[in-house]
């Protein structure tokens, strides 16, 4: 694995290796010194063309715990809007010797372009591109579910919300199905892409009928502004039909958990009581995010051919 661009590129073995590695990384959090020398001397650039403090600091923490040098490059707000800048930025990073580039971009496919254009040679990690994918989010979600539910084989996982615009949903559907889960996406018809028959999941418009058969429910963030484009009539109506409140939560099986990639619209897609309930693993997702990103950076960067012998000796985590 040279880049992580799409959750769909991962085989079951790849995904399992990442999740298992993340388990080891997570155990590090309980040690007094939370740092490994695995990526010492390697440079990781966080290239964020969109604001995302959570994802950026998660990657930053992950890289630092692996002893990598971290450069944060926030292109938001600068004159970067045209593609030429993506190219120039990539050439700049190449000139500075970036070993890994973590890219968040508003345009679907931008990390793919960085990885395939020949502008730079470093490994590219997709940290969310447009309405396409967000593979490390899916990995951390799967990791969190696995810790609670054990193997995901045959587990029933329900993803609810704005699937049309959600990179989280796309990556999760691909990854969870690879891991053997039965995935159902639930949304109003306006927020599902047309022609989903090739997706490895089933779809439903009715949340109440799906909840009793769910081992995990993932609520997606829904932007209120979508109602201005007639995707749904009002925030209240959305909430009534597709929001998860305590009454709906009561329909879940006893052991079922509730996830949310954040940031939440409390009172919109998820009620405050649900978000703060014992079923909610939302805060844990954040913790696990660091472990997953450590695992991804470690697997992508520590074993590459140009690595010197000293770093191979360090692969003992």
């Amino acid at each position: 694995m040279r880049h992580l661009l799409s959750a769909g590129d991962l085989t079951r073995d790849d995904a399992t290796l990442i999740l298992d590695t993340a388990e080891e990384m997570r155990s590090l959090a309980d040690r007094p010194i939370k740092k490994l020398p695995a990526l010492r001397g390697r440079t990781v650039v966080n290239l964020f063309f969109e604001d995302s403090t959570r994802t950026r600091i998660s990657f930053e923490a992950a890289a630092k715990r692996l002893s990598a040098d971290v450069i944060n490059f926030s292109a938001k707000g600068s004159s970067v809007s045209k593609g030429e800048s993506l190219k120039d930025t990539a050439l700049t990073l190449q000139a500075m010797g970036a070993d890994g580039v973590v890219c968040r971009h508003g345009s679907s496919g931008a990390p793919h372009l960085l990885a395939t254009s020949g502008w730079m040679t470093g490994s590219v990690v997709n940290a969310g591109d447009g309405t396409h994918e967000h593979p490390t989010q899916a990995l951390l979600d799967a990791f969190t579910m696995r810790r609670h539910l054990g193997s995901l084989e045959g587990r029933r996982i329900t993803i609810v919300g704005d699937v049309l615009h959600s990179r989280v949903a796309r990556s999760n559907v691909l990854l969870l199905s690879t891991l053997g889960a039965d995935v159902t996406v639930v949304a109003p018809p306006t927020l599902l892409p047309v022609g989903m028959s090739s997706w490895p999941c089933t779809t439903s418009y009715d949340l109440d009928s799906v909840l009793p058969k769910s081992d995990a429910v993932m609520m997606l963030r829904v932007q209120r502004e979508r109602m201005n484009d007639a995707f749904f009539p009002s925030a209240r109506e959305y909430s009534r039909r597709y929001g998860l409140d305590v009454h709906r939560m009561a329909q879940l099986p006893d052991e079922a958990i509730v996830l949310h990639p954040g940031p939440m619209n409390r009172g919109m897609e998820i009620s405050a009581q649900v978000a703060d309930s014992t079923r909610s693993v939302i805060v844990e997702q954040v913790t696990n995010g660091v472990a997953i990103r450590m695992a991804v950076l470690y697997l992508l960067l520590s074993g590459s051919p140009e690595t010197s012998t000293t770093s191979t000796e360090e692969q003992t985590a």
Partner: peptide
């Protein structure tokens, strides 16, 4: 083009 592929690629149809 809007269809199965645009949904997968996350490109507006």
């Amino acid at each position: 083009n809007e269809g199965e592929l645009s949904g997968v690629l996350g490109l507006t149809g």
